[in-house]
Amino acid sequence: MNIFRFAGDMTHLISILVLLLKIYATKSCSGISLKTQELYAIVFVARYLDLFTDFISVYNTVMKLVFIGCSLAIVWCMRLHRVVRRTYNKDVDTFRHYFLVLGCFLLALFVHEKFTFQEVLWAFSIYLEAVAILPQLVLLQRSGNVDNLTVQYVFFLGAYRAFYILNWIYRYLTEPHFGRWIASVAGLVQTALYADFFYYYFISWKNNAKLQLPA
């Protein structure tokens, strides 16, 4: 474990807690893409299959349970909670995210570390996580300026993978035979997708204005 990875995990945890806070405190999920949340639930379930078969550390197991638990709780909240579900605007959350699932699964069938059930699903979860933010970014573009908590959520979510890239560079430099090309390339793509968001986020922060994404 290195500081970059720990910072990445904590930033990821903060992003999920910010989202839970927003939904719980405002009893509203306006501005949040349910499709992105569903993609993240699939990412965590597909990636943490080894939860009960491969014990790495208490930290690793606890964080996996937290990520799976929170992502499923958010999807449950947005779909079934009697108050929150009414604030979900499905007319603006129209990204065809099932194509993302299919595309990532097909890619995982061809590009993986080993052709086993667990490794193919692991690669699938890595690819899917790289593009899971797309429905949310599209929704942000559509709904113009959104509330701060949603913007913070996307910001922390983007920052976490950027920390992981530093983690992979660090591990590549310090560990022999460390080659996580699948995760590193997908992580670069994932962070690149946030690039324009980060740019407009920084501009709005500098001008102390609300975030305005160009339509």
Binding site: N60, K64, H177, R180
Partner: peptide, 10 residues
């Protein structure tokens, strides 16, 4: 062959 590295990251 290099053993498949365990996925020790989240």
């Amino acid at each position: 062959a290099r053993p498949i590295a365990r996925h020790d990251e989240l």
